[in-house]
């Protein structure tokens, strides 16, 4: 098991109180698994991804445990996390286009970064070059400034950089949303290639674009308003979802080719609750067509079939 998350709860501090962006998340990612994390914007998927690697104010760690390769991650400590970052857990950020220092040559920046982590640059160089070849970047990029690279090139460069230490878990945050459709596909396939060549063990792919997940993810996990709704193998998720929210989410997508989930769900009345003062129990309750009095309690995230987890009282009842 590469990642184990138990009861992870992370809030955002605001002047008006805590925004409960991630509530009691418990799940695992297996070795070699590419897990897609999906949901509407503001559902907490980015909070989950970021809290695993760089938990900074206004984010606030509330409770929960994270283990990577069975070793506990001190995600609550900015400094304590440093030994794990890059080597055990790494990220391709959403802002990959601006992720590199604009006034440093890429090679120089890489060298300074590696040396600061006590890794010899010259020892790593051959591997770095191999990986550049892998993503079809010329070795000249090392002598260039980020501004001289195109968007797609920057994206690939950041992919190489982030995975250089072969992290156990790679978090890929909306890596395709800034790219045009043809590049999207190429980048997504590269990610699979990275996993296959063991440049990283497992991947958490955060996106609102279900079509990408459909293409490359092994499993999909759906979140709603800070709570986990459902996790299952991609095929299961697309064809037989169990959670009422997931069902609506999947069915609201155009049938031919699975498309964006970012747009407000037209079929479901209402909008996601404000997480400053979320409703008690299941947070989907107020919009849920099948809600009943039991939903005033928070449903646990349970495995109802093998590798298929759902948090819904109605489904538990049906299975019982």
């Amino acid at each position: 098991m590469s990642l184990q998350v138990e009861h992870l709860t992370v809030y955002y501090q605001t002047l008006r109180g805590d925004v409960q962006a991630l509530e009691d998340a418990t799940f695992t990612i297996e070795d070699g698994e590419i897990m897609g994390l999906a949901g509407e914007s503001g559902c907490g998927k980015t909070t989950l991804g970021h809290s695993l690697i760089r938990l900074v104010p206004p984010m606030r760690y509330v409770r929960g445990k994270v283990k990577i390769d069975s070793e506990e991650l001190p995600i609550w400590g900015m400094e304590e996390m440093n030994p794990f970052r890059f080597k055990k857990i790494s990220i391709i950020p959403q802002y990959a286009m601006n992720a590199m220092n604009p006034t440093r040559k890429i090679g120089k920046m890489t060298e300074e970064l590696l040396e600061s982590r006590k890794v010899s640059f010259s020892d790593t160089l051959p591997e770095l070059k191999r990986r550049l070849d892998m993503v079809e970047l010329t070795h000249d990029v090392m002598n260039m400034y980020p501004i001289e690279l195109s968007g797609g090139m920057k994206q690939r460069m950041v992919m190489v950089l982030s995975t250089l230490m072969d992290p156990t878990l790679l978090i890929a945050d909306e890596i395709t949303s800034a790219l045009d459709v043809s590049t999207q596909k190429a980048v997504a396939e590269m990610l699979v290639e990275f996993r296959n060549r063991e440049c990283c063990n497992s991947v958490m792919l955060i996106t609102h674009d279900l079509s990408i997940l459909y293409q490359i993810a092994d499993t999909i996990m759906v979140m709603y308003a800070g709570q986990l709704s459902e996790k299952a193998a991609t095929h299961t998720m697309i064809h037989s979802p169990r959670h009422p929210y997931t069902k609506l989410l999947i069915s609201s997508l155009p049938k031919v080719g699975v498309k964006y989930a970012e747009k407000r769900l037209k079929g479901i009345p209402g909008s996601p609750p404000l997480l400053l003062d979320p409703p008690i129990g299941c947070r989907f309750r107020e919009r849920c067509p099948v809600a009943f009095d039991k939903c005033l309690d928070v449903p646990p995230f349970l495995e109802i079939e093998k590798d298929h987890l759902v948090a819904c009282w109605k489904e538990f009842e049906r299975d019982a």
Binding site: M81, S90, A99, M100, T103, R104, L161, S162
Partner: peptide, 25 residues
């Protein structure tokens, strides 16, 4: 607060390196 600083932090770069880059820029 710029993206490149956050990225360095996410990759575990020590404070001194992040500060050095921020100052230069």
């Amino acid at each position: 607060e710029a993206d490149y600083s956050h990225y360095l932090e996410a990759l575990g770069a020590p404070r001194s390196l992040v500060r050095k880059y921020a100052f230069r820029n």
